[in-house]
């Protein structure tokens, strides 16, 4: 039996029991980043495939929400900072080794791309829209002609952003629950699935919804596979990793994780989507909202649980 006691100074609520420095801001930031990445990925890829008219909501309408999501995300990141006056230093330094640093940069690049993309569709969606200035009109005309040129970097950056939301966590060797490279792809797929859910919510076109539902079901299956893989990898790992995963397999995170993430956030919406494809009448709002809520709760649980896990010494 091994018991650890603090003789001094350390049994104080300000530092211990664990160094929970990241609260709701970081998981929300990761959620918004993943969601925007998902939408912009679909918008880009369908443009490259030349399907912008068949997938009108995906390519033209859904991306209009992404600048707001990204800016809100950046604002949440700002809220997380404890020394806010020095915020600008994030953008006067480039440190490639710091995931926090390059995440801020990826968002800084992604936000203008998303603004340009959405702006180029404004006149098409809102016929009364007027850009007022001539140079804006010339710029718009240029972009409309060269959309494919923007779609490529946008799609690639969307994947980077999606993966980044996982890498931000997995780069921390000190938190065994996060320190696995599968977290990058897992967060990417989960982000894409939440992006698809937003598109499902917005789209009125039956055919488009069908395509997105199919994609979403596939994404959910991949996500379930990744989660299983994540847990199995930990189970086969060191004691610190086994302790970490036990939080989800019997420990205090088991009930919320399996109820809200696995069952309500993945299995049920997948089932509802399958039923809908089979011709049953399911209001599309239900699976979409479930996926969004599941994705958000998933990030909250992983961020919260990760901060409890630690090296044993």
């Amino acid at each position: 039996m091994k018991e650890e006691l603090f003789v001094s100074g350390r049994n104080i609520p300000n530092i211990d029991p664990y160094l929970n420095i990241w609260h709701w801001q970081i998981p929300s930031y990761l959620f918004l980043g993943g969601l925007a990445a998902g939408i912009l990925f679909f918008a880009g890829i369908f443009t490259i495939m030349g399907k912008e008219n068949k997938m009108a909501t995906t390519v033209k309408i859904a991306p209009m929400f992404t600048p707001f999501a990204l800016m809100l995300g950046l604002f949440l990141l700002f809220l997380d900072l404890k020394h806010k006056m020095w915020f600008w230093q994030l953008y006067t330094t480039i440190r490639l080794e710091s995931p926090m640093g390059w995440g801020a940069w990826v968002l800084m690049i992604m936000t203008p791309i998303s603004i340009i993309w959405s702006a180029s569709y404004l006149t098409e969606i809102f016929p009364n829209w007027d850009w007022k200035f001539k140079f804006l009109k010339t710029f718009e005309a240029w972009i409309i002609k060269n959309r494919i040129l923007i779609a490529w970097p946008m799609t690639i950056y969307a994947v980077i952003l999606g993966i980044y939301t996982g890498i931000l966590l997995s780069a921390f060797n000190a938190r065994p629950l996060w320190n696995t490279s599968i977290l990058g792809p897992l967060f990417l797929v989960s982000g894409m699935s939440t992006g698809a859910a937003v598109i499902l919510l917005l789209s009125k076109d039956h055919k488009e919804r069908k395509i997105m539902s199919r994609i979403d079901i596939l994404l959910i299956i991949i996500e379930l596979f990744f989660i299983t893989h994540l847990f199995m990898g930990f189970k086969a790992g060191s004691e610190a990793q086994i302790n970490a995963v036990n939080l989800f397999l019997g420990g205090s995170f088991t009930a919320p994780f399996f109820t809200f993430v696995v069952i309500l956030g993945l299995l049920l919406p997948a089932l509802l989507e399958v039923l809908e494809l089979r011709g049953f009448k399911v209001p599309v709002v239900i699976p979409a909202i479930l996926i969004l809520a599941g994705g958000l709760i998933f990030r909250f649980l992983i961020v919260e649980a990760g901060q409890i896990t630690r090296y044993l010494y």
Partner: peptide, 27 residues
Amino acid sequence: HNKCIGCGACIESCPYEARYSHPDGYV
């Protein structure tokens, strides 16, 4: 202190829990 933005990344990264967030904002 004047370069720290208080993002908390280093607190998460330390396996020894050696860092804390100072009430003035920096780590």
